[in-house]
Design a protein around this nucleic acid. Sequence first.
DNA 1: CTAAGATTAAAACATGCGTTTAAATCGAAC
DNA 2: GTTCGATTTAAACGCATGTTTTAATCTTAG
Lengths: 219, 219
Amino acid sequence: MTEPTTCDRILDAAEALFAEQGFHPASLRQITQAAGVNLAAVHYHFGSKQALLLAVFRRRLDALNRSRLQRLEEALGKAEGAQLEDVLDAFVYPALALSRGSDADGHRFMQLLMRAFADRDEDLHAAISSEYAFVMRRFADAIAQTLPGREPDLLRRQLDFIVGALTYTMAESSLADTRSIASDLVRFAAAGLRGSGQRTASTDSAAQTGARSTLETSS
Amino acid sequence: MTEPTTCDRILDAAEALFAEQGFHPASLRQITQAAGVNLAAVHYHFGSKQALLLAVFRRRLDALNRSRLQRLEEALGKAEGAQLEDVLDAFVYPALALSRGSDADGHRFMQLLMRAFADRDEDLHAAISSEYAFVMRRFADAIAQTLPGREPDLLRRQLDFIVGALTYTMAESSLADTRSIASDLVRFAAAGLRGSGQRTASTDSAAQTGARSTLETSS
DNA sequence: CTAAGATTAAAACATGCGTTTAAATCGAAC
DNA sequence: GTTCGATTTAAACGCATGTTTTAATCTTAG
């Protein structure tokens, strides 16, 4: 039984407290006390409170996106070809299975992710974007293949709808029913994607060029 | 030309700075300086920083929900009966038209609303819930009428998907294209609702009873 | 004009914050 | 066993915060 390192203890405590209280309200004194380490350890190992937050995100997003991509590859490798639902499931399901030790971890991290989207913090946004961009592009491509002829701009926007629904719902909902929520969301999203191929005539399609999106790379 | 009152000046400045920076980082000194009033005026008129935040939300949500309900009544009053798209539009569109003076206000408030959902602040959640509950129930009923036979639990959850997609997208997107986003979202949501009536067989429907939802009243 | 209440103003208070410093302690290599 | 770098510890620094207090200034009614 190897004791967790000081770094990991800090990351665990920080993730929990950032998720519960938010970045600014959660103090380093709380975090280090919960982790059972000295206050100065944060600056020794991470450099600053902000850098600690980035480290928390990186640890989780690495795992989340690895899991998503693996599941996507499995779906794409099937003999009969990937169904839209399979692709959506590969995106949605790993968000539930984030747990690392306790089962509550995944839910907590989703709350933290929701905070990250709400925050206008530029550094954090850039870091998350760069971790996400590649994965989002892969999924956009996979979905596009099951929906031939879909305008890329529209598809990107619709993926944002799904990300919003996923993040909001996962952060809001109680822990017990995440599995059934994911299943409902996959069905809802698949129907939404299939059933809204073209824009309505009244839509001002000239205004859509300036859209920012989770899918945009930072490069 | 009547000068805006001290209260209004504080509310305007607070809304802008809370949206831009978040609740905790935005200091009362910043807010009162931007409003051109004395620091102590906040405590004199509102009592505390937290109470100021609640006042900011109340002012906007009152207007937003009034506008939504009015638009819903118009849709329901039409001779040919309300289409699903009409109901969704009544819910989505007023979120864009929140502007109060500047056009940027609505967008800013959406960011603030996103923050509110991300925050676990109990008081704020309760206040928003109580303002929202009645409106959400009205819309759930209206949508249910256009989708006969839909399970109420499932519909509630699907409405959460739409709220998540709306909030996330409105907060993330640039100002120029909110109109076309709303139109795309209405189409996406209508297709999602129509196309996912029953759950899949694999769904564990016993787990869904514990669901928390924006639709739940606090009473 | 004056007195009373509502509002604004300036200053101070207490507290908690992120960060830094400097010494103590540990762990392995020679 | 000693030395040297890595790590941990305790204490302090400087500062910004929300809030309170006390006095000054308006507003308004008699």
